[in-house]
């Protein structure tokens, strides 16, 4: 008999015991380990996915911030450039204005100096010419300079043309007295000479008031209601001043041009 029923029962029991033992010692722990590992891997994958998402978000944020930063930097750079340009222009304008004002004041100073010099030269020239003429006249003709001057003035009065005479007459009528100004005090003879010369010229008596005016510089003039006849060294001096003044102006302009070029 191939089948031994005791062995069958024993083997069935053995098998059931083996099932129970293996379930306890093999399947359960192995499956638990597998599950634990699967869960761990799933958790790690989820974590990795989460980290990836976070990294992508961070990257996007970074890129956004970077873009913003670039834009801000560009704007700030533009602003700085504009401010620097504005400051440069302002400083240029300021410097130009300062230079111009300095140039103006320098030119005014120069002009002032020239005028002062001119005046001093003119003054000294008057006096020098006056002294020279007086000396020359005294030496050559034994003539008094003032007398000669009065004489010449008288001659000029007498040589007046009719139009001038008419004007002078009209002036005399409108004022009380004619005014004769001279650089030096006239003697009685000299006053008489002038009186006679005027009366003979106008063929009418005229009241004359004599005044001394040192600024005329060896000169004499007759003034009546806007009408005037005069002779003075000052006239000659004036032409001399004009020529000397022209020379001075030319010199100033040359100096200014040189300073600008510098």
């Amino acid at each position: 008999m191939l089948i031994d029923w005791f062995t069958v029962a024993a083997q069935a029991l053995n098998f059931i015991i083996l099932v129970a033992l293996l379930k306890h010692f093999l399947y359960r722990p192995i499956l638990a380990a597998l599950d634990a590992r699967e869960q761990k891997i799933a958790a790690e994958l989820a974590d990795a996915a989460h980290q990836k998402t976070a990294a992508i978000e961070q990257r996007e944020l970074f890129q956004q911030k970077n873009g913003l930063f670039d834009q801000q930097r560009k704007e700030l750079f533009e602003q700085a450039l504009q401010a620097a340009n504005a400051e440069r222009l302002r400083l240029f304008a300021e410097a130009r204005s300062a230079a111009e004002s300095f140039q103006t004041s320098y030119r005014a100073t120069l002009l002032n100096d020239a005028q002062n010099l001119n005046q001093a030269i003119s003054q000294q020239t008057h006096q020098a010419v006056f002294a020279i003429v007086r000396q020359v006249l005294a030496d050559l003709a034994s003539a008094n300079f003032e007398d000669q001057l009065i004489q010449m003035f008288a001659n000029r009065l007498q040589a007046l043309d009719n139009t001038a005479k008419a004007s002078l007459l009209a002036a005399i009528n409108s004022v009380d007295a004619l005014v004769v100004r001279s650089a030096f005090t006239l003697t009685a003879e000299q006053c008489t000479v002038i009186q006679q010369a005027l009366e003979s010229c106008l063929a009418t008596p005229a009241a004359i008031r004599f005044e001394t005016a040192p600024e005329l510089i060896s000169g004499i003039e007759l003034v009546a209601n806007g009408w005037k006849i005069a002779w003075s060294i000052a006239d000659y001096i004036a032409s001399l001043e004009q020529s000397v003044g022209g020379l001075l102006i030319e010199t100033n302009q040359a100096t200014a041009a040189n300073s600008n070029a510098a």
């Binding site: 089948i3 031994d4 062995t7 069958v8 083997q11 069935a12 053995n14």
Partner: peptide, 11 residues
């Protein structure tokens, strides 16, 4: 053994 296989088959 047929006893074992029978036991397994019965199981």
């Amino acid at each position: 053994s047929l006893s074992t296989t029978v036991a397994l088959a019965l199981c």
